[in-house]
Protein backbone atom coordinates (compact mmCIF):
# COMPACT_ATOMS: atom_id res chain seq x y z
CA UNK A 1 0.00 0.00 0.00
CA UNK A 2 1.43 3.39 -0.93
CA UNK A 3 1.05 6.41 1.34
CA UNK A 4 -1.15 8.07 -1.30
CA UNK A 5 -3.97 5.63 -0.75
CA UNK A 6 -4.22 6.50 2.94
CA UNK A 7 -6.38 9.37 4.09
CA UNK A 8 -4.58 11.59 6.60
CA UNK A 9 -6.58 12.48 9.69
CA UNK A 10 -5.93 16.17 9.10
CA UNK A 11 -7.74 17.81 6.21
CA UNK A 12 -5.41 19.64 3.89
CA UNK A 13 -5.98 22.94 2.21
CA UNK A 14 -4.96 21.71 -1.27
CA UNK A 15 -4.97 18.19 -2.48
CA UNK A 16 -1.63 17.88 -4.32
CA UNK A 17 0.26 14.97 -2.90
CA UNK A 18 3.45 17.01 -2.34
CA UNK A 19 1.82 19.12 0.33
CA UNK A 20 0.34 16.17 2.22
CA UNK A 21 1.41 15.32 5.72
CA UNK A 22 3.13 11.95 5.71
CA UNK A 23 1.24 9.41 7.79
CA UNK A 24 3.79 7.83 10.12
CA UNK A 25 2.49 6.14 13.24
CA UNK A 26 4.87 6.52 16.17
CA UNK A 27 6.63 3.19 16.73
CA UNK A 28 6.13 1.50 20.08
CA UNK A 29 8.85 -1.19 20.08
CA UNK A 30 7.82 -2.85 23.35
CA UNK A 31 4.17 -3.30 22.46
CA UNK A 32 4.41 -6.79 20.91
CA UNK A 33 6.47 -8.04 23.86
CA UNK A 34 3.74 -6.87 26.26
CA UNK A 35 1.05 -8.50 24.14
CA UNK A 36 2.99 -11.78 24.01
CA UNK A 37 3.60 -11.73 27.77
CA UNK A 38 -0.09 -11.15 28.55
CA UNK A 39 -1.12 -13.94 26.15
CA UNK A 40 1.40 -16.36 27.71
CA UNK A 41 0.17 -15.51 31.20
CA UNK A 42 -3.48 -16.11 30.26
CA UNK A 43 -2.66 -19.47 28.63
CA UNK A 44 -0.55 -20.49 31.65
CA UNK A 45 -3.32 -19.63 34.10
CA UNK A 46 -5.80 -21.73 32.13
CA UNK A 47 -3.43 -24.70 32.12
CA UNK A 48 -3.14 -24.52 35.90
CA UNK A 49 -6.93 -24.11 36.27
CA UNK A 50 -7.68 -27.15 34.06
CA UNK A 51 -5.32 -29.22 36.18
CA UNK A 52 -6.82 -27.88 39.40
CA UNK A 53 -10.44 -28.69 38.48
CA UNK A 54 -9.87 -32.20 37.01
CA UNK A 55 -11.31 -30.81 33.79
CA UNK A 56 -11.38 -33.95 31.60
CA UNK A 57 -13.95 -33.84 28.77
CA UNK A 58 -13.24 -37.55 28.15
CA UNK A 59 -15.06 -38.47 31.37
CA UNK A 60 -18.18 -36.72 30.11
CA UNK A 61 -18.10 -38.70 26.85
CA UNK A 62 -17.55 -42.01 28.64
CA UNK A 63 -20.28 -41.40 31.22
CA UNK A 64 -23.06 -40.21 28.93
CA UNK A 65 -25.18 -43.30 29.65
CA UNK A 66 -25.54 -42.43 33.33
CA UNK A 67 -26.71 -38.98 32.43
CA UNK A 68 -29.12 -40.25 29.81
CA UNK A 69 -30.65 -42.71 32.29
CA UNK A 70 -31.12 -39.95 34.85
CA UNK A 71 -32.79 -37.64 32.36
CA UNK A 72 -34.80 -40.53 30.94
CA UNK A 73 -36.22 -41.22 34.39
CA UNK A 74 -37.34 -37.62 34.61
CA UNK A 75 -39.46 -37.83 31.45
CA UNK A 76 -42.32 -37.42 31.18
CA UNK A 77 -42.70 -34.82 33.95
CA UNK A 78 -45.24 -35.70 36.63
CA UNK A 79 -48.19 -33.37 36.01
CA UNK A 80 -50.60 -34.77 38.63
CA UNK A 81 -52.28 -31.79 40.28
CA UNK A 82 -52.62 -33.04 43.86
CA UNK A 83 -49.29 -34.81 44.14
CA UNK A 84 -46.90 -32.50 42.32
CA UNK A 85 -48.34 -29.41 40.59
CA UNK A 86 -50.27 -27.83 43.47
CA UNK A 87 -47.52 -28.27 46.09
CA UNK A 88 -45.02 -27.06 43.50
CA UNK A 89 -46.98 -23.88 42.73
CA UNK A 90 -47.57 -23.16 46.42
CA UNK A 91 -43.88 -23.63 47.18
CA UNK A 92 -42.97 -21.40 44.22
CA UNK A 93 -45.04 -18.62 45.74
CA UNK A 94 -43.12 -19.06 49.01
CA UNK A 95 -39.86 -18.82 47.05
CA UNK A 96 -41.09 -15.61 45.42
CA UNK A 97 -42.08 -14.15 48.81
CA UNK A 98 -38.65 -15.02 50.26
CA UNK A 99 -36.97 -13.24 47.36
CA UNK A 100 -39.31 -10.23 47.65
CA UNK A 101 -38.92 -9.72 51.41
CA UNK A 102 -35.19 -10.45 51.26
CA UNK A 103 -34.85 -7.62 48.74
CA UNK A 104 -37.21 -4.98 50.13
CA UNK A 105 -36.38 -5.44 53.81
CA UNK A 106 -32.68 -4.95 53.07
CA UNK A 107 -33.34 -1.54 51.47
CA UNK A 108 -33.06 0.57 54.68
CA UNK A 109 -29.80 -1.03 55.84
CA UNK A 110 -28.32 -1.03 52.32
CA UNK A 111 -29.28 2.62 51.82
CA UNK A 112 -27.73 3.72 55.11
CA UNK A 113 -24.51 1.78 54.55
CA UNK A 114 -24.30 2.93 50.91
CA UNK A 115 -24.55 6.59 51.95
CA UNK A 116 -21.80 6.03 54.53
CA UNK A 117 -19.64 4.02 52.12
CA UNK A 118 -19.68 6.41 49.12
CA UNK A 119 -16.80 8.87 49.23
CA UNK A 120 -18.94 11.79 48.07
CA UNK A 121 -21.58 11.36 50.78
CA UNK A 122 -19.68 9.79 53.68
CA UNK A 123 -19.25 12.13 56.66
CA UNK A 124 -15.76 10.99 57.58
CA UNK A 125 -12.93 8.80 56.27
CA UNK A 126 -13.18 6.45 59.27
CA UNK A 127 -16.94 6.04 58.84
CA UNK A 128 -16.30 5.36 55.15
CA UNK A 129 -13.77 2.62 55.95
CA UNK A 130 -16.02 1.08 58.62
CA UNK A 131 -19.06 1.03 56.32
CA UNK A 132 -16.98 -0.53 53.53
CA UNK A 133 -15.77 -3.21 55.96
CA UNK A 134 -19.32 -4.05 57.10
CA UNK A 135 -20.51 -4.28 53.49
CA UNK A 136 -17.57 -6.51 52.60
CA UNK A 137 -18.41 -8.83 55.49
CA UNK A 138 -22.08 -9.22 54.49
CA UNK A 139 -21.00 -9.78 50.90
CA UNK A 140 -18.25 -12.27 51.75
CA UNK A 141 -20.50 -14.57 53.81
CA UNK A 142 -22.63 -16.53 51.30
CA UNK A 143 -26.40 -16.38 51.82
CA UNK A 144 -26.46 -20.14 52.29
CA UNK A 145 -24.16 -19.80 55.32
CA UNK A 146 -26.37 -17.06 56.74
CA UNK A 147 -29.34 -19.41 56.21
CA UNK A 148 -27.65 -22.23 58.15
CA UNK A 149 -26.89 -19.78 60.99
CA UNK A 150 -30.46 -18.47 61.14
CA UNK A 151 -31.93 -21.98 60.95
CA UNK A 152 -30.23 -22.70 64.29
CA UNK A 153 -32.05 -19.69 65.77
CA UNK A 154 -35.52 -19.68 64.16
CA UNK A 155 -35.70 -23.28 62.94
CA UNK A 156 -36.22 -24.67 59.44
CA UNK A 157 -38.50 -22.63 57.20
CA UNK A 158 -38.87 -19.61 54.94
CA UNK A 159 -38.26 -17.10 57.76
CA UNK A 160 -34.62 -18.21 58.02
CA UNK A 161 -34.32 -17.77 54.26
CA UNK A 162 -35.68 -14.21 54.40
CA UNK A 163 -33.22 -13.30 57.17
CA UNK A 164 -30.32 -14.81 55.22
CA UNK A 165 -31.20 -12.87 52.07
CA UNK A 166 -31.59 -9.61 54.01
CA UNK A 167 -28.04 -9.99 55.36
CA UNK A 168 -26.35 -10.97 52.12
CA UNK A 169 -28.32 -8.55 49.96
CA UNK A 170 -27.48 -5.65 52.29
CA UNK A 171 -23.84 -6.28 51.50
CA UNK A 172 -24.22 -6.58 47.74
CA UNK A 173 -26.82 -3.87 47.18
CA UNK A 174 -25.06 -1.46 49.57
CA UNK A 175 -21.88 -1.78 47.57
CA UNK A 176 -23.60 -1.43 44.19
CA UNK A 177 -25.52 1.63 45.40
CA UNK A 178 -22.41 3.22 46.93
CA UNK A 179 -20.63 2.85 43.61
CA UNK A 180 -23.46 4.33 41.60
CA UNK A 181 -23.52 7.31 43.98
CA UNK A 182 -19.79 7.82 43.49
CA UNK A 183 -20.25 7.85 39.73
CA UNK A 184 -22.85 10.61 39.51
CA UNK A 185 -22.10 14.24 38.69
CA UNK A 186 -20.94 16.00 41.88
CA UNK A 187 -22.04 19.43 40.61
CA UNK A 188 -25.53 19.67 42.14
CA UNK A 189 -24.19 18.59 45.51
CA UNK A 190 -21.47 21.25 45.34
CA UNK A 191 -24.07 23.84 44.35
CA UNK A 192 -26.14 23.05 47.46
CA UNK A 193 -23.03 23.17 49.65
CA UNK A 194 -22.24 26.68 48.44
CA UNK A 195 -25.89 27.57 49.17
CA UNK A 196 -25.29 26.60 52.81
CA UNK A 197 -27.02 23.20 52.90
CA UNK A 198 -25.65 20.73 55.44
CA UNK A 199 -24.37 17.29 54.52
CA UNK A 200 -27.66 15.43 55.09
CA UNK A 201 -29.55 18.08 53.11
CA UNK A 202 -27.05 17.82 50.25
CA UNK A 203 -27.49 14.04 50.08
CA UNK A 204 -31.29 14.14 50.39
CA UNK A 205 -31.79 16.96 47.88
CA UNK A 206 -29.07 16.39 45.28
CA UNK A 207 -27.26 13.06 45.47
CA UNK A 208 -30.17 10.71 46.14
CA UNK A 209 -32.63 12.25 43.65
CA UNK A 210 -29.89 12.01 41.00
CA UNK A 211 -29.33 8.27 41.49
CA UNK A 212 -32.95 7.09 41.76
CA UNK A 213 -33.02 5.44 38.30
CA UNK A 214 -29.76 3.55 38.92
CA UNK A 215 -30.94 2.55 42.40
CA UNK A 216 -34.23 1.14 41.15
CA UNK A 217 -32.48 -0.68 38.30
CA UNK A 218 -30.05 -2.31 40.73
CA UNK A 219 -32.89 -3.13 43.14
CA UNK A 220 -34.77 -4.99 40.39
CA UNK A 221 -31.62 -6.81 39.37
CA UNK A 222 -31.08 -7.91 42.97
CA UNK A 223 -34.74 -9.03 43.22
CA UNK A 224 -34.13 -11.22 40.19
CA UNK A 225 -30.95 -12.66 41.75
CA UNK A 226 -32.57 -13.10 45.17
CA UNK A 227 -35.52 -15.10 43.81
CA UNK A 228 -32.98 -17.49 42.28
CA UNK A 229 -30.93 -17.53 45.50
CA UNK A 230 -34.02 -18.42 47.53
CA UNK A 231 -34.30 -21.59 45.39
CA UNK A 232 -30.89 -22.67 46.60
CA UNK A 233 -31.79 -21.69 50.16
CA UNK A 234 -34.68 -24.17 49.93
CA UNK A 235 -32.11 -26.91 49.56
CA UNK A 236 -30.80 -26.22 53.07
CA UNK A 237 -34.26 -26.22 54.59
CA UNK A 238 -35.37 -22.64 54.15
CA UNK A 239 -38.62 -23.69 52.45
CA UNK A 240 -39.95 -22.97 49.00
CA UNK A 241 -39.62 -24.87 45.75
CA UNK A 242 -35.94 -25.60 46.41
CA UNK A 243 -36.98 -27.80 49.32
CA UNK A 244 -39.38 -29.77 47.08
CA UNK A 245 -36.70 -30.26 44.43
CA UNK A 246 -34.36 -31.58 47.08
CA UNK A 247 -37.02 -33.93 48.47
CA UNK A 248 -37.97 -35.31 45.05
CA UNK A 249 -34.31 -36.06 44.26
CA UNK A 250 -33.81 -37.81 47.60
CA UNK A 251 -36.89 -39.97 47.05
CA UNK A 252 -35.87 -40.73 43.42
CA UNK A 253 -39.04 -39.06 42.01
CA UNK A 254 -37.19 -37.50 39.11
CA UNK A 255 -40.42 -36.88 37.17
CA UNK A 256 -41.64 -34.64 40.01
CA UNK A 257 -38.24 -32.97 40.09
CA UNK A 258 -38.56 -32.10 36.40
CA UNK A 259 -42.02 -30.59 36.97
CA UNK A 260 -40.65 -28.41 39.76
CA UNK A 261 -37.73 -27.30 37.60
CA UNK A 262 -40.14 -26.36 34.79
CA UNK A 263 -42.19 -24.30 37.25
CA UNK A 264 -38.97 -22.57 38.34
CA UNK A 265 -38.15 -21.86 34.70
CA UNK A 266 -41.50 -20.12 34.26
CA UNK A 267 -40.99 -18.16 37.49
CA UNK A 268 -37.53 -16.95 36.42
CA UNK A 269 -38.83 -15.85 33.01
CA UNK A 270 -41.75 -13.99 34.59
CA UNK A 271 -39.52 -12.19 37.10
CA UNK A 272 -37.01 -11.31 34.39
CA UNK A 273 -39.70 -9.92 32.07
CA UNK A 274 -41.24 -7.96 34.93
CA UNK A 275 -38.00 -6.26 35.91
CA UNK A 276 -37.09 -5.58 32.27
CA UNK A 277 -40.50 -3.94 31.83
CA UNK A 278 -40.04 -1.71 34.88
CA UNK A 279 -36.54 -0.74 33.77
CA UNK A 280 -37.83 0.20 30.32
CA UNK A 281 -40.49 2.42 31.91
CA UNK A 282 -37.83 4.08 34.07
CA UNK A 283 -35.54 4.76 31.14
CA UNK A 284 -38.34 6.36 29.14
Amino acid sequence: MTPHTLTPAVARRDSTSESRVALVRPKKPLRWITTAAVAAAVVGLHAVAIEGTDFKPGLLVDGWKGMAAFIGDAFPPDLSWEKTLRPGLEATLVTLWIGLLGTTLSVPSALLLAALAANNTSPHRLVYQAARAILSFFRAVPDIVFALIFVTAVGLGPFAGVLALICHNTGVMGKLWAESMEEIDAGPQEALRTAGANRIQQVANATLPMVVPQFVGLLLYRFDVNVRSSLVLGLVGAGGIGLLINQSIKSFQFDSMLTHILIVLVLIIVVDQFSAWIRRRLAA
Partner: peptide, 14 residues
Amino acid sequence: MAMIFQKIHLVPRR
Protein backbone atom coordinates in the same frame (compact mmCIF):
# COMPACT_ATOMS: atom_id res chain seq x y z
CA MET B 1 -23.47 35.12 48.14
CA ALA B 2 -25.00 32.71 45.64
CA MET B 3 -23.23 31.00 42.78
CA ILE B 4 -24.44 30.29 39.24
CA PHE B 5 -22.50 27.62 37.38
CA GLN B 6 -21.67 27.06 33.73
CA LYS B 7 -22.96 23.50 34.02
CA ILE B 8 -26.08 24.75 35.83
CA HIS B 9 -25.92 21.99 38.49
CA LEU B 10 -29.63 21.48 39.02
CA VAL B 11 -31.12 18.05 39.73
CA PRO B 12 -32.75 17.13 36.37
CA ARG B 13 -35.24 14.64 37.83
CA ARG B 14 -36.74 17.09 40.31
